[in-house]
Amino acid sequence: MRLIIISLFLLLFLSACASTGPAPSNRTPPPVLTEVETEIRQPASEESAGIQVQPLQNPAVRQLLASASASESAGQLEQAAQMLERGLRIEPRDPELLQRMAEIRLQQEAWQQAISFATRSFDMGAQAGELCARNWRTMALANEYLKDPQAAAAARTHLDDCMRQRPQKY
């Protein structure tokens, strides 16, 4: 039953992608900040309702993540990145930190680095649920900016796996 619901949801989502999905050629950077919200965080959160993976986090890392969020909202991206780097010194494999860094790099228009950090986050993470969706959505979006529609499309196909697989590592 759940599989059907998820599949239906995915179908809806994919069709939405097809109709309203951004065309890579006529993009003009950058209201990337809002895009990180509308094209990565929100949909990932919606898609993954029910497949939540929330690993335990070091309180120090939690504090730094909160500071990074505050800086990000204030538009201080470099400061946010500094906070995340501090977090990564403590927990270099924390997938949330890595993904947040990917999202900051995206806003800083460092597309290749956004892809790198999202890849690393995926490798280190549960490879399922919301974070997984954010990983692939970041890679898709960054590839669109890099004018590589093929890679972007390939990234989007992985979104299915995020919803299908059960969390294994935590």
């Binding site: 470099e78 400061q79 990145a81 500094q82 780097e85 990564l88 860094m101 460092a110 290749q112 680095q113 790198s116 950090f117 890849t119 690393r120 490798d123």
Partner: peptide, 16 residues
């Protein structure tokens, strides 16, 4: 004032 930051960057290799 932050004069310059040397960002953390990484490149995933294909042979992981």
């Amino acid at each position: 004032a932050l004069e310059e930051s040397f960002r953390l960057t990484m490149t995933p290799l294909q042979n992981r």
